[in-house]
Design a protein around this nucleic acid. Structure first.
Length: 184
DNA sequence: CGCTCGATATTCT
DNA sequence: GAATATCGAGCGA
């Protein structure tokens, strides 16, 4: 997913516009064998999408304030999995993103999982939608081939820290701030 | 820049 | 009752 483009089509004042950004930071979460995954205890109402079709949106509410956007994905040996989209490099609709975020700083628009969900207005109504078609308003497009990707432990977890399942396009300035601190 | 801390819903112990 | 796949304000340097 690093290097691909996440697109949100949205109607504003009767006009269809595109909000988009290049995916520059992700984290992988597996199923029952991943102690950091929401799916570690098996299916529940919240995580059920992780056990369904791949290529769907898994969206959850966290810390009482933010939504996080994931794309379901897994190997054939797993029964659950998803990739958290942690940061985007804004491409289209930057002025609209600033309105959604109530923020003028370009860096802060999409440099974190909660931020990008707010900038693209991706909320719980999109949970479970198919991201491989353009019908539902959120989808993934081809993007420029990424140049250099590094992997590190995942952010904000205390279990499963031995797995380097966070991936960052090292040449992007838009990886989340917390994340960049952790690289050093 | 980089650290601390409060907000706050959902899930798990 | 505790932890959490987070963010921004406030602070000091």
């Amino acid at each position: 997913l690093i290097g691909k483009t996440l697109v949100r089509t949205i109607s504003i004042g009767g006009k269809n516009s595109r909000l988009s950004g290049a995916i520059v930071e992700t984290e992988a979460y597996e199923g029952r064998n991943d102690p950091a995954s929401h799916a570690r205890m098996g299916p529940t109402p919240r995580n059920s999408v992780m056990f369904g079709q791949v290529g769907r949106a898994y969206i959850y509410f966290t810390y009482g304030t933010h939504y996080c956007f994931n794309i379901t994905a897994r190997s054939s040996r797993q029964d659950a999995g998803a990739v958290l989209i942690r940061a985007l490099e804004p491409i289209e609709g930057i002025e609209v993103m600033k309105l959604h975020r109530i923020c003028d700083k370009s860096y802060s628009l999409t440099s974190g999982p909660g931020k990008l969900a707010q900038a693209l207005q991706i909320g719980p109504i999109f949970n479970g939608i198919d991201l491989t078609t353009q019908d539902s308003g959120v989808f993934v497009e081809k993007g420029p081939r990424p140049t250099q990707i590094i992997s590190t432990p995942r952010i904000g977890i205390t279990r499963g820290v031995d797995r380097n399942w966070r991936f960052v396009n090292l040449l992007s300035k838009y990886a989340s701030r917390r994340a960049r601190i952790k690289i050093r």
